[in-house]
Each structure stands twice: as structure tokens, then as C-alpha cells.
Design a protein around this nucleic acid. Structure first.
Length: 372
DNA sequence: ATGTGC
């Protein structure tokens, strides 16, 4: 059996949770897997580590992508001037965003080159878990020349959307498991091709979902906006490594080959707009950290924090931002304390020479869920 | 993660 190599990207790899590293080791033993990379936000998942990339010359492993195929981050620079932005006003306006979108789904699907059968009441909704929409402002600019070259403007409101393919990606993975079992497949097999078609559609649907979510929020805020980036951190895509064609699985790993990347901190911390260093190439399987990474599991976070805080105390963060989260359990599970320090994650990526930071973004309002 | 699990 061919040995695969495992690389851990961090200034101090000993910092990683041993359970997450064990999960990388078991994934490295899957059929055809040759290269595995753990990124600085690596943490244990449900059997498969999050914050990791896996490469095979010939196999695809749907469980290495997970349920939320196409999940990712998108970032908008809004038309609205920051000096005119009023937090309390925005907080009042952001309602009726959790129910079905009342727009023309059929037309939206056609524009996204997706079949009409992918219409679904969840299109245009954020979902649960770690998904969010966050209104932000530019805190500081690390690379003014690049910032200007990209025609970015620090005097406007910015908006980040983190969501995915909702039930559709989940159905694609379950479909694969029910047909083939919880296994990998040769990419060129009929079953492999069937999964890849479902996968690619779920990915495109997730991109459309983020766009519609952003449109809904923009409408409430009575402003337009320009999308700066949209990147998926759960996917399997064809990708050559060291000149050999193959398949790159990303499980909570941002692409380093698709232009600008947004790496969010917890809702109580800064996010970073970064640019991958092109020359870094294969060093980390063309991937970057996708966020801060969990420090505590959901259940641990709930147990520890619900003892120390009341939910209302978590509706404002240490940076002064507001949190709209009317789910009593979720507000504890997703509290800033449950996440690692994003500054350390960014420093790790910089240390290895994978990114250049362009700007740091400050959270103003994090929207999770609201009853109406 | 999940038109959510007992």
C-alpha cells in the first residue's frame, strides 16, 4: 500500500488537537489518497477533520467533502457610505430573512445554469450551525497599494455571507452513501461521475444561495453592492499536484488558486481579506485556512458558556458588534470563546508564506437567525 | 451541516 504524506501547516504543529491529527491519519489511509494537509484552523470533526485538504490521483471520497458541499464565504462591498450607516437602524430593518425567498427561483436557476428541479424553499436562506451574514467595516489596510488597485473603498459598508447548499449537498452525500456505501470511488467510474455531477450542481447552487442571501439583505438595507469574492471551502475538484492530474478534496479549506480570500474570525473578532501567494503553489495543496477553527465542540461550548453567561450578554461582543441570534442554544455554541484566535491562524499562514494580508475587517452586526 | 434527533 502506497504511503501518503501528512503535512501540518502551523508555526507550532504541536498545538493541534491530537484527535484532529488522528483523523487526518485515518483519512490518509483511504484508497488512493496521497497527500494530506492540515491547515492552521484544523479541528476534529465527525470522523473527518475540518481545516484540511486531501489529494488523490484517481479517487474521490465524498465523505471527505461532507454534507455541506459548496459551503463558503462571499464578500460584498456595499454602495452605502459607512458614515451614513446606523447600527440600530440596520438591526430593526433586518427582518423576514429566514423564511423562503419570494423572488423568481426559476429565473435565478436558469441564470446560474442549474436545472429547474433544484428549486427549493431553502434557496436564499442562511441555515444554521456556523452560517451567518455579517455587516463589517474596514478596520485597517495592510497593503494600501493592492487595496487601491482592487478599487476597494474603506468608507463603505461591507458584508460577508457564510452559507452553503443547505439540504441539497446533504442529499448528494446521502445519495452516494445509499447507492455505494460510505466509501470512495474511482473518479472515472459511473458512480463517481454521478456523484460529481450532484456535487458540481450543489456547489453552483451554494454560490447562487449566497448571492440571493446578499440580495435580500441589500434590499432591507436599501443599497446595492459589488461582490468582491465568492469561494467554496467544501469541495472536490480536479487539480494537478506536482504535474500529476488528480482530485483535490477540501474540507473546511479555502482555495488558494481562485483569487482573493476572506478568512473570518469568530463573530467577536476581526476577519481578514487576504491574497494567496501564487508561488506557494503545492506547498499546502493550493489551500488556506477557512476561518479561526473551533476550540470547543458545540456541546462543550454550550455547557461551559451557558453556566457563565445569559444569552442576552452574548448579544454584544467585546468589539462592540451586535449579534442577532434568537436560537438559545446556537448563541452559546457559536460564541467567540468557542473559537481559536484568528490572529494566530493568519500569522501561521503568513509564516509559511501562503498569504499576503490586504485588510482587516471589523464586525458591526452578525446575523444568525431571527423568528421574524 | 441537516425542510435537524430522542
Amino acid at each position: 500500500m502506497e504511503r501518503s504524506d501528512i503535512k501540518l501547516i502551523a508555526r507550532d504543529p504541536a498545538q493541534f488537537d491530537p484527535q484532529a491529527v488522528d483523523q487526518l491519519r485515518s483519512s490518509a489511509r483511504l484508497a488512493g489518497i496521497r497527500h494530506v494537509v492540515g491547515l492552521p484552523d484544523l479541528h476534529a470533526g465527525h470522523g473527518i477533520a475540518v481545516g484540511a485538504a486531501f489529494w488523490s490521483p484517481d479517487h474521490i471520497h465524498p465523505p471527505l467533502v461532507g454534507s455541506d458541499i459548496g459551503c463558503g464565504m462571499a464578500l460584498w462591498q456595499m454602495d452605502g457610505a459607512l458614515r451614513k450607516f446606523r447600527l440600530a437602524h440596520a438591526e430593526r430593518r433586518l427582518r423576514d430573512l429566514d423564511g423562503p425567498w419570494d423572488g423568481d427561483q426559476a429565473a435565478a436557476l436558469v441564470r446560474a445554469d442549474l436545472p429547474a428541479s433544484m428549486a427549493d424553499p431553502s434557496l436564499g436562506t442562511i441555515g444554521g450551525g456556523n452560517h451567518f451574514v455579517e455587516l463589517q467595516r474596514v478596520e485597517d489596510i495592510a497593503d494600501p497599494a493592492r487595496f487601491a488597485e482592487l478599487d476597494l473603498d474603506a468608507d463603505r459598508l461591507w458584508m460577508m455571507v457564510h452559507s452553503g447548499s443547505r439540504g441539497l449537498g446533504h442529499a448528494a452525500l446521502q445519495g452516494h452513501i445509499s447507492r455505494n456505501g460510505n466509501v470512495g470511488l474511482p473518479a472515472d467510474s459511473t458512480s463517481g461521475q454521478a456523484y460529481l455531477q450532484d456535487h458540481d450542481r450543489a456547489m453552483a447552487w451554494a454560490v447562487l444561495n449566497r448571492q440571493i442571501i446578499a440580495d435580500r439583505f441589500a434590499e432591507k438595507l436599501a443599497m446595492g453592492g459589488r461582490r468582491i469574492l465568492d469561494i467554496c471551502h467544501n469541495s472536490v475538484t480536479p487539480h494537478a499536484v506536482a504535474g500529476q492530474a488528480g482530485w483535490l478534496h477540501r474540507k473546511g479549506a479555502a482555495p488558494a488558486d481562485r483569487g482573493l480570500v476572506a478568512i473570518p474570525g469568530s463573530r467577536g473578532d476581526f476577519s481578514f481579506l487576504v491574497e494567496p501567494v501564487a508561488a506557494a503553489g503545492d506547498r499546502a495543496l493550493h489551500s488556506l485556512a477557512h476561518g479561526a477553527g473551533r476550540r470547543w465542540s458545540r456541546s462543550d461550548a454550550h455547557a461551559r458558556l451557558s453556566r457563565r453567561f445569559r444569552a442576552a450578554e452574548l448579544e454584544r461582543t467585546p468589539l462592540g458588534s451586535r449579534v442577532i441570534c434568537e436560537d438559545r442554544r446556537l448563541i452559546f455554541e457559536e460564541a467567540p470563546q468557542a473559537y481559536k484566535d484568528i490572529t494566530g491562524v493568519i500569522a501561521d499562514l503568513q509564516h509559511v508564506g501562503l498569504i499576503r494580508v490586504i485588510a482587516r475587517l471589523r464586525p458591526l452586526l452578525s446575523y444568525k437567525v431571527r423568528s421574524q
